[in-house]
Design a protein around this nucleic acid. Structure first.
Lengths: 248, 248
DNA sequence: CGCAAATTTGACATCCCTCAAAATTGGTGG
DNA sequence: CCACCAATTTTGAGGGATGTCAAATTTGCG
C-alpha cells in the first residue's frame, strides 16, 4: 500500500471536540440537518460524535476500512480516490463544505475509496449507527439524507457523461465552471478562486493526462477566457467557458 | 458496469399486474425486501402498488417526470439514458432483475434520466411515499435500502474508473465479464449469453464509437477469446478476458 | 539560497473517431 | 415461403485529438 501513516485519522485537534454546534455552522443550510426544527436539530447533534481536523494530505479513511462514521466537510476540501493496481490512484471526486462523504461504504459497510485532505480541513464525523436510528424517528431527516444521496448520484452521473462524451476543452471548462459556482459565492462579478488540487488530481479526475490539462489552461488563457497564475484562476469570460462546457 | 447482486433468470412473464407476490418472486433474495421477516415482508408488499409490463423499447419514465415510484426490475432488462442537447442520448447504465431503478430522482424528486426496456420486461412499482413511511418503522428495510443505494454508487464509481482510465479493449472486456457474471446462473461452465442491447448502446455506455465496439469484438474473436454471432456471445477464454479487463 | 516537486512546453506516436460503403439481420407484405 | 427494405453490424481508409517521452522552467519549502 501507500506510505504508512496510521490508518485512522489521529489528529482530532481537540479545540472543538465539543458538542458540535450546528447552530453556529456557516454551512448549516446546505448541510445534512438543513430544515430540521430546533428539537430535531438538537437530536441530530448527538450523532455528530466529534469534529475532526485534518492537515493537508492527511487521510480521513482508507479503502477497505469498516464504515463507522459518515463525514461532512465543515471547512477545507477533500478528494476521494481509488487505489489502482498500477499504484496510480484514480481521483473520484472533490468535496466542499456541506457535502457528505463516505456513502460508497453503504453497501459493503467498508469504504471503497481513500479520502484525502487537499488542504487543512475540518469534518464532522457522524455515527452511522446513531444516524440510522435517528432517521427512524425523524422523517425530515430521512428525506434530507436521501436528498444528499441523490445529489451524490447525480454528480457521478454528470461525471460519467463528461468522461464518456466530452473532449478535453469541454471537460476542463465544465470542471472550472462547476468549481466556480459551487465554490461559495463571491457572486458573478468576482470570479476568482484558488484550485486546491494539483494538475495531476484534475487530470485524473477528468480522465486526461496532466500535460493536457496544462495545455488546455494555456489555451484558455491565450483565448482570453481566464487568467491563471499557478493555482489561482481568474475567470475573464465565464459565459464563453460555460458555452464550451455544454457544447456537444 | 454491471456488477453485484443479481444472479437470476429473467424469462418469467408474470401473469398479470395483481397483488404483487414477493413470496413467489424468483429474485426475492436479491431484491429490496431481502432478509425481511414474514411480517415485514407483508408490510412491504403494500408499497408495491403494481406490477407493470413493458414492451421492448417502451419507456418506464422520462427525464423531468416527478418521482412517485421507484422501480425494481422483475424480469427483462432496462437501460437508463440521459437525453443530450445534440439529440444523441448517452447510456448511463443497464439494469437486471432485482436491481433498483430511479434513485437518481431522490435529490430533485424528478427523474434525471429516461428508462427504456431493452426487451419485454416487468417491473415492480414501489410508492416512494409508502416506502419512506415504512422505512421509519423497519430498520432492516432502511439498511437494505441504503445497501442498494451504495451498490448503485459503487457501480457508477466503477464506470467512472473505466471511462477515465481504460482503453477500448479493457472497457469492452470489463463490460462483457460483468455481464457474464451478473447475468444468470449457468456459472462458469456455460459462458454464453445474449446481449439485449445494440452495439450503439454498448458504445455509448463505454464512451466509444459503435464501430470501435464492433472492431474490438472482431479482434477478440480473432484472438480466440470468444465467439460472437450477432448478439449472442460465447466466452471461450474468460480468464484471458478478465485479465484484459483488469490490466492497467 | 538550494533542492525537490510541480508545472509548462515541445516533438512524436498512437489510439480511436469520422466518413464511407458493403454485408448481414430482422421484419413485413406479397 | 420468398422478396424486399430498413436497421444493424462489419469492414476499410484517413485524420485528429490526446497520451507518452523528454526537457526546460517555475514554485514551494526547508
Amino acid at each position: 500500500m501507500l506510505s504508512s501513516t496510521s490508518a485512522v485519522p489521529r489528529s482530532e485537534q481537540p479545540s472543538a471536540g465539543l458538542p458540535s454546534t450546528c447552530h453556529a455552522c456557516p454551512t448549516r443550510e446546505h448541510c445534512l440537518p438543513a430544515g430540521l426544527d430546533p428539537a430535531a436539530l438538537h437530536s441530530f447533534e448527538h450523532t455528530v460524535e466529534r469534529r475532526q481536523h485534518l492537515k493537508r494530505h492527511e487521510r480521513l479513511y482508507r479503502y477497505g476500512m469498516p464504515l463507522e462514521h459518515l463525514f461532512i466537510v465543515a471547512s477545507g476540501q477533500i478528494k476521494t480516490e481509488r487505489p489502482m493496481p498500477d499504484g496510480r490512484p484514480q481521483v473520484l471526486g472533490f468535496y466542499l463544505p456541506g457535502q457528505l462523504l463516505g456513502l460508497d461504504a453503504l453497501s459493503s459497510h467498508t469504504f471503497c475509496s481513500d479520502a484525502v485532505a487537499l488542504c487543512d480541513s475540518t469534518v464532522c464525523a457522524i455515527s452511522y449507527a446513531m444516524l440510522t436510528s435517528l432517521i427512524q424517528q425523524r422523517s425530515t431527516l430521512l428525506l434530507r439524507f436521501h436528498a444528499l444521496f441523490g445529489t451524490e448520484l447525480a454528480r457521478q452521473q454528470s461525471n460519467m457523461l463528461l468522461l464518456g462524451n466530452a473532449k478535453a476543452p469541454q471537460r476542463l471548462a465544465a470542471f472550472l465552471m462547476d468549481l466556480a459556482t459551487s465554490h461559495h459565492a463571491p457572486a458573478p462579478p468576482a470570479p476568482s478562486f484558488e484550485l486546491r488540487m494539483s494538475r495531476d488530481d484534475i487530470a485524473s479526475h477528468l480522465g486526461l493526462a496532466l500535460e493536457s490539462v496544462s495545455r488546455q489552461l494555456t489555451q484558455f488563457r491565450a483565448a482570453g477566457l481566464l487568467e491563471v497564475q499557478n493555482r489561482r484562476i481568474e475567470l475573464l469570460d465565464a459565459d464563453a467557458l460555460r458555452a464550451i462546457a455544454i457544447s456537444s
